[in-house]
Design a protein around this nucleic acid. Sequence first.
DNA 1: TCATAAAATTGGGCAACCCAATTATCTATG
DNA 2: CATAGATAATTGGGTTGCCCAATTTTATGA
Lengths: 246, 246
Amino acid sequence: MVPETPEKADAVLSFSPVKAILRHQSIIEQIMGLIESGALQVGDKFPPERMLADRWQVSRPVLREAFRVLQSQGIVESRHGDGRYVRSVRALDANDLRRRHLIDRRESLLQIWEVRALLEVQAARLAAVNASEEQIRAIERPIILMGEMAAPDSRETDLNMEIHTAVALASGNDYLAQMILMALEEYRALDFKEAVPIEEWKGLQEEHWPIAKAIRSRSAERAGAVMTQHFEDLKRALDKWSGSTN
Amino acid sequence: MVPETPEKADAVLSFSPVKAILRHQSIIEQIMGLIESGALQVGDKFPPERMLADRWQVSRPVLREAFRVLQSQGIVESRHGDGRYVRSVRALDANDLRRRHLIDRRESLLQIWEVRALLEVQAARLAAVNASEEQIRAIERPIILMGEMAAPDSRETDLNMEIHTAVALASGNDYLAQMILMALEEYRALDFKEAVPIEEWKGLQEEHWPIAKAIRSRSAERAGAVMTQHFEDLKRALDKWSGSTN
DNA sequence: TCATAAAATTGGGCAACCCAATTATCTATG
DNA sequence: CATAGATAATTGGGTTGCCCAATTTTATGA
């Protein structure tokens, strides 16, 4: 049962990406843990970074990377010459969801699919009505790029995201768009592409053109219909996939 | 005109904190500028960090701090031994939404209404199929409490939230439920109740019973229909509201 | 007593170095 | 010649030691 080569193991078991946890990331989780547990309240001062670096056994640069991220999220504030303080306990909302998916990847994929289908079909309808010329081109651009790509590429995933994002943003409903961005982010985090066979993938990508065309022709009904079709085909592809549930 | 003390100057001019721009922050702005200007497209590879550090005259740690932040926002991806890539052109900042609400409260309310309607109608349908007996009771409980309340009470808002939350959780789709919780949270943050006249409010609350009944009777279709009705009536109430747009 | 100066503390930043993952190149073999 | 395997170059991840700059604390002296 021992595979002859690592590559073969990949193909057969399609095992999880593993990707080693980066130091700064685990520090971020440490700190968030302290905040969520209530050990750190709003306004509290952190110990000096040199002390934390020593206690957590990481270098100062790594610690600073972690604090920068937290700072950019508004959770921590740095005061030069003074110290670092807890500014807000409010977590990143979006990232909260992420952790739950680790249980059953396939189930998560289907759940997110359901939400995406709901939101994005509506976004397509709205985009047909509300999209500006520039927004329409933002939808078409990645579709063109995708078509120009000769061989399958890892960037295909990003382009696919880009298309759906552009449709969401063209809907004119900023809140809807943000929700879709969130769902897309989750979706990508699950490495969905692996769940779709290459043949299916190709066909799915070609379905993007009718969507763009329907939006350009300002037909809300058709835009909704083709987007619905797109998601149904995606569902079919996902259903075929009976890979490991993790 | 020279102030006697620095404090006085502060009080009178209340001048901005100035706070020198941090190196990593200006690097982030550089990169975002390149992306927004289109010089960097999705999928593009960044030059190696050593080269960028040299070109921009900053140390590697500073550059890495900048990339960490961008990474945490999903804008760039780092691949050990390979390089860094543009992953997405837009930031996903949950705090962005909240800021937007400050501009036009009425518009925000309508946008969130649209998303809620989509998600919650589906949740109602799913709940009719998937809800456990316990989950159904969790839906009915706050409805009963609401009916028993003699005078209008500040707790009404909480009970209303609880009802919708219970339906979301009974859907069986955890991700859908999480999204609904998020939308509800936003909704409440906008103090929506003020936007609904008292007479309308009373009628809206009474519509919760048919929803619960449809779910208990396991009729997905009816559950979806009454929830749709509920949201349409809510929309009507919101439309009547011509309060200040702020 | 209180303003002022010196010292200690703390975050911001730099340079040189090493490790680890990936990619590109070279080499030997069938 | 083609290609699998070894080797080198490239690139991000991470550490250490050092210095600077802003702030707070302590000490000093009129």
